[in-house]
């Protein structure tokens, strides 16, 4: 469903992504991990063309995201994106955050958008926070709103970029619970995370990146028990040490 085919990307003379390929099937959950600066965020941003690629192709359900002339807003609307620092619109209330895209992009009526937003807020356990501004919410609550905002667009897939790494420890699980739920319902997900517990529970495969390359793609069990590359072994031992 998401097909990343041999993409390369440069920031000026810095080669961030080197011939990365990856296929994600419908309903599959894939976890991407790797050391800081390895290009995980960049890769995931390329999937909905927030960053352009220099060569290679990314196809999302028949649509070539990397082709010239592709209507990017429509592609992006179909891929939900969750950021490390939530990135809620600070000048809008929680419910307005969820309604904005529905009204402006999907052209839903205000009533329809509100109904959808309310049901999603209920689903992430924040029905009572609808009228507040994002700044009044805890980090965990903000991230759940961000997930609901992405879901409001009825996405066919969701991308997460370290969704829990900016959170206090006690809030991590409330966000992971929502994500596990989503996975169980069959959402296609690409998740950049170092939460290995989460990976073990829901990911079918793990992708290990290092220095701009996809170094390893393995079944979750295999990856944890017996990683192929030394870099992955080293990385895992550091991560699992604490």
């Amino acid at each position: 469903m998401i097909k990343i085919d041999n993409i390369d990307k440069w920031y000026d003379d810095f080669h961030v992504l080197k011939g990365c390929s990856l296929e994600v099937e419908r309903g599959e959950v894939i976890v991407i991990c790797g050391p800081s600066g390895s290009g995980k965020s960049t890769l995931i941003k390329c999937v909905n063309a927030l960053e352009p690629v220099d060569s290679g192709r990314i196809v999302v359900e028949e649509t070539d995201v990397t082709a010239r002339g592709t209507k990017l807003p429509l592609v992006r609307a179909r891929i939900g994106m969750v950021f490390q620092h939530f990135e809620l619109f600070p000048h809008k209330t929680v419910i307005e955050n969820l309604m904005m895209g529905q009204i402006k992009v999907l052209k839903r009526s205000r009533e329809a958008a509100r109904e959808k937003a309310e049901s999603l807020l209920k689903r992430v356990g924040l029905a009572d926070q609808a009228q507040k501004y994002p700044s009044a919410l805890s980090g965990g609550q903000q991230q759940r709103v961000a997930i609901a905002r992405a879901l409001a667009m009825d996405p066919i897939a969701m991308c997460f970029d370290e969704p829990t790494s900016a959170l206090d420890p006690e809030m991590i699980s409330e966000v992971l619970d929502v994500m596990v739920e989503l996975a169980k319902e069959g959402m296609t997900m690409m998740v950049v995370t170092h939460e290995m517990g989460f990976a073990r529970r829901v990911a079918r495969r793990v992708v290990f990146m290092d220095q701009g390359e996809v170094k390893e793609i393995a079944d979750t069990d295999t990856f944890f028990r017996n990683p192929e590359t030394d870099r992955a072994k080293e990385f895992l031992s550091k991560i699992l040490a604490h």
Binding site: L50, L74, M81, Q84, M100
Partner: peptide
């Protein structure tokens, strides 16, 4: 305004112009 907040507007499918009108300028 942080780069990812701008990305967040684009990610829900706003066009660059809409992103200016509804997110970047109001903030």
């Amino acid at each position: 305004i942080g780069k990812d907040l701008v990305n967040a507007g684009l990610a829900i499918g706003l066009t660059p112009l809409q992103n200016y009108l509804y997110i970047r300028l109001p903030i």
